[in-house]
Amino acid sequence: MKKYTQFLFAIAALLLLEINANAQGCVAIRQFSGLGNAVGQGNILNKGEWNISANYRYFKSFRHFRGTHEEPNRIEDGTEVINYQHGLDINISYAFSERLYGIVSLPFQYNERSSLYEHNRTDRHTTYSKGFGDMRIGAGYWLLSGEKAKKGNTAIGLGIKFPTGDYAATSTFYRGEESTPTEMTVDQSIQLGDGGTGLIVDFQGLWNIGGTNFWYYDGFYMFNPKETNGTVTNRRRENESIMSVPDQYALRTGVFHAFEKIHGLGVSLGGRIEGIPVRDAIGGSEGFRRPGYIISVEPGVSYMLGNLTGTLNVPIALWRNRTQSVTDIENSTPDDIVHGDAAFADYLINFTLAWRIPKKIASPFN
């Protein structure tokens, strides 16, 4: 029974591999994950064991929102901005003890952005960015041990996000009536990094709520004290000419069910919120940003075979809000309220493949 309970916790814990705050569109700066995605199996690792995971994420953003109001005419008129974003995070965690773990997360990205307004406003063209993103390292600690943790546990963690991604990536734009090829910095939404060093505070937890059912929760907040990064936005308003370095956050919770008759199979259903605040918690908030958030319902499925586990989560957007930014407020007058828009996705695809490596090296299928 004890071994079976540990198995259930193992597959349920993989739900914690999925948190990422790319906000499914232009609101977020880039593909970005909290440290939770690298330590989802932390509560099943014994001292000296490793967990290696690869998390792939994809979305297409194209629905424009100003506040919570969608602007369907953008699609009807063919003027919508379309972002295709692919991200791959290689995550390595190590258990220094049954309660203390360390993490390294290495992100890679490939992004495309299709628009009219950034070019000659008549013909649609595509800009690109690809490469290494902002690396994260951190550590966490499970609050309970031994018998106290047999029903569940909660971990808290701290991490650092380093500005290793290119935050001034360029691509070819086609400008003016003659569509002259011009090398310029790409939009903030597909930059590979933000140029700031961030502090990440995160948590994760998993509790048995009866039988083979579990309650899970995890989230993070990234403090980005740096105000702007010096990268030009190519926007007309002076106070929006340089890119901001904003905070980011995400929160998830839900229920996981493991099937007793189908060994290794589990399903989940939960909710999540992710986004960028209007103002940073620490430091200034000037420069251009697209603040906002998405609330999504998040179904998922996972399957474990030996030490190898695959997990698929597909958050589906229910509520999208492009909030008024600091520069929007500064540019507004009583007779002219400025409120920028942003493009959001309908859904996000998250797929994770994780391998728990015991002290004694074994095949993934042992």
Results as ranks from 00 to 15, higher is better:
314 V>F: 09
323 T>A: 13
325 S>H: 04
328 D>N: 04
315 P>W: 07
317 A>C: 12
323 T>I: 08
334 P>I: 03
320 R>W: 00
339 H>M: 12
317 A>Q: 08
323 T>L: 08
321 N>F: 04
337 I>F: 14
312 L>F: 12
311 T>P: 04
327 T>E: 14
334 P>Q: 02
323 T>V: 06
313 N>I: 11
331 N>C: 11
337 I>P: 08
338 V>L: 09
313 N>S: 15
336 D>Y: 13
340 G>Q: 06
314 V>W: 07
327 T>H: 03
326 V>F: 10
318 L>P: 01
338 V>K: 13
330 E>F: 13
316 I>W: 10
338 V>G: 09
319 W>M: 11
323 T>E: 13
317 A>P: 07
311 T>Y: 14
322 R>S: 13
313 N>H: 15
339 H>G: 09
330 E>V: 14
335 D>F: 12
337 I>N: 13
321 N>M: 04
330 E>R: 14
318 L>Y: 05
318 L>E: 02
328 D>M: 00
325 S>M: 00
332 S>Y: 07
312 L>I: 15
339 H>R: 12
338 V>M: 10
329 I>E: 15
314 V>Y: 10
332 S>D: 02
326 V>C: 04
325 S>V: 00
322 R>K: 11
321 N>I: 01
319 W>D: 10
325 S>I: 00
335 D>Q: 13
337 I>D: 10
335 D>R: 10
329 I>P: 07
317 A>D: 13
339 H>W: 14
330 E>N: 12
333 T>V: 05
329 I>F: 14
317 A>N: 12
318 L>F: 05
313 N>F: 11
330 E>H: 13
326 V>K: 06
312 L>V: 15
331 N>Y: 06
339 H>Q: 15
312 L>C: 07
330 E>P: 02
328 D>G: 02
337 I>Q: 09
317 A>V: 08
339 H>T: 11
333 T>N: 04
331 N>P: 06
333 T>D: 05
331 N>V: 01
319 W>R: 14
323 T>H: 06
333 T>P: 02
321 N>L: 02
331 N>A: 12
335 D>K: 15
331 N>S: 15
312 L>A: 08
336 D>R: 12
340 G>P: 00
333 T>Q: 05
332 S>N: 05
312 L>D: 06
340 G>C: 01
327 T>L: 01
315 P>R: 03
311 T>N: 15
333 T>I: 05
322 R>F: 05
324 Q>V: 09
316 I>E: 04
320 R>I: 01
338 V>S: 12
326 V>R: 05
319 W>L: 10
335 D>T: 14
340 G>F: 02
319 W>H: 10
320 R>E: 02
327 T>V: 06
326 V>D: 03
328 D>Y: 01
315 P>N: 00
331 N>Q: 10
326 V>M: 07
325 S>E: 01
323 T>G: 06
330 E>C: 10
317 A>W: 09
328 D>T: 00
335 D>V: 05
324 Q>I: 05
328 D>V: 01
339 H>D: 13
329 I>D: 14
336 D>H: 11
314 V>N: 06
340 G>L: 01
321 N>Q: 09
319 W>Y: 14
335 D>A: 10
325 S>C: 04
320 R>V: 02
338 V>C: 07
313 N>M: 15
320 R>T: 03
322 R>P: 03
338 V>P: 03
311 T>F: 11
316 I>P: 08
323 T>Y: 03
329 I>K: 15
314 V>Q: 09
324 Q>W: 05
318 L>V: 03
340 G>N: 11
325 S>T: 02
335 D>E: 11
338 V>W: 08
323 T>P: 08
